[in-house]
């Protein structure tokens, strides 16, 4: 336990020194601002694009549009940026041989996986929460309507989905020596889950529901109990995947 704690501190320091924290902060603050901004500007942009000859009846933007932009940013490019940042976390150290000293001095290998997972997940939460708070502030300032009463219930699923997605990235990273394996594994899993989502009957059980149903949860047209099975499946598969990553690093030549 003590070893894990020390490794967590080393990981946080590393993330600070190699600019990962800086990038995550800046990018997600930008995303937080962009949601309300795009919602507010879309009618103007359309007006400019079509000129004065053609008039399109556009409904005034609401807070729902702002949140829709936010979740679109978070669940597409946001996820990929985080995965690119985390994807080399174990494979890099194995490739450079920097783990050898620590492991021979008695650092348990499972500590490495646990610490890396925890630090990556902390960064995930930090990024998502920061963008969320900024987006929340601007949205309630620019769109003071009550069409999105349950903003927090749209938020939890995204944070829980992070548990699974970070675990998959770590597994991919621990399986291979290549930097890109973690990224590739996560992208493939994301695509497979999205394809499974085409079958309507899997909807409630598919972890992808946690990042596709947020807007209905916010509106209140769907209750969080509807996707409860998906939440349990996400948590259980996260544990399995972390166990697999520990196994994979255990039998690996450093």
């Amino acid at each position: 336990m003590k070893a894990t704690w020390f490794f967590i501190r080393k990981e946080l320091l590393e993330s600070w020194r190699n600019y990962h924290l800086l990038i995550i902060t800046v990018v997600f603050v930008i995303f937080g601002i962009e949601g309300p901004l795009m919602a507010k500007l879309t009618p103007d942009i359309l007006k400019m694009a079509t000129g004065s000859g053609l008039t399109i009846k556009m409904p005034d933007p609401t807070s729902i549009d702002a949140w829709q932009q936010y979740y679109k940013n978070m669940t597409q490019i946001g996820i990929y940026i985080l995965v690119v940042i985390f994807s080399g976390t174990i494979s890099n150290e194995v490739a450079q041989g920097t783990l050898v000293n620590l492991v021979t001095k008695g650092l348990p290998r499972y500590s490495v996986v646990m610490a890396k997972y925890i630090v990556a997940y902390i960064q995930w939460c930090l990024a998502i929460m920061m963008a969320f708070l900024i987006s929340w502030g601007y949205t309630s300032y620019y769109f003071p309507d009550n069409r999105s009463p349950h903003i927090w219930s749209g938020m939890w699923p995204l944070l829980i989905f992070g548990l699974l997605f970070v675990a998959i990235t770590i597994l991919g990273s621990s399986l291979s020596k290549s930097n890109y394996m973690g990224f590739l594994t996560s992208v493939v899993v994301f695509i497979v889950l999205t394809l499974l989502n085409l079958f309507k009957s899997t909807g409630r059980y598919n972890p992808i529901a946690l990042v596709t149903d947020n807007i209905y949860l916010i509106k209140g047209t769907e209750q969080i109990s509807h996707i409860m099975p998906a939440i349990w499946i996400t948590i259980i598969s996260t544990m399995v995947i972390i166990y697999l990553s520990v196994l994979s690093l255990k039998y690996k030549k450093l």
Partner: peptide
């Protein structure tokens, strides 16, 4: 019209 949104965006991007 949207200065409160654009100023932080511009500062962040130029800073980065």
């Amino acid at each position: 019209n949207n200065l409160p949104l654009f100023i932080p965006l511009i500062i962040l991007e130029v800073g980065l």
